[in-house]
Nucleic acid binder design. Structure first.
Length: 113
DNA sequence: AGAGTGACTATGC
DNA sequence: CGCATAGCCACTC
């Protein structure tokens, strides 16, 4: 990242939403992107989360892809840091996949309104 | 300004 | 949702 300011608006929006995710709940990149108005930029959401790494206040571990898989765990500190954090919040994770993903799913567009 | 890239998603088999 | 493809948007060089 160039941290050159001026246009990290999208990133900040992502942070804001991610920060609102309740404990023990998860959401998908697409849901966040959709909530922000850029449905197609689900990838950008993930990218923004990479930039969010330094910001520990951002629960990036609560954001997974549409099938509930911890695809971004490789970008986390340790290999299983993401999973452990989730389990600590009551989210069961097996083989990088969130269990009961459908129930734990948190859609900002509907829950947040 | 063009090309490369990515923590994705939808669609098809 | 197993694997492969294509489309997607914002960002970086």
């Amino acid at each position: 990242m160039a941290e050159k300011q001026g246009k990290k608006n999208f990133f900040e929006d992502v942070y804001e939403v991610v920060r609102l995710i309740p404990e023990g709940r998860v959401t998908s990149y697409g849901a966040i992107a959709s909530y922000l108005g850029s449905k197609g930029s689900a990838r950008m959401v993930g990218w923004a989360l990479i930039a969010s790494q330094p910001f520990t206040a951002i629960p990036a571990h609560r954001v997974v892809n549409r099938i509930g898989m911890l695809t971004g765990k490789q970008h986390f500190e340790a290999g299983n840091a993401m999973q452990e954090r989730l389990e600590k919040e009551g989210v069961k994770v097996v083989k990088d996949q969130v269990q009961d993903f459908e129930k734990l799913f948190w859609d900002p567009a509907k829950e947040l309104l």
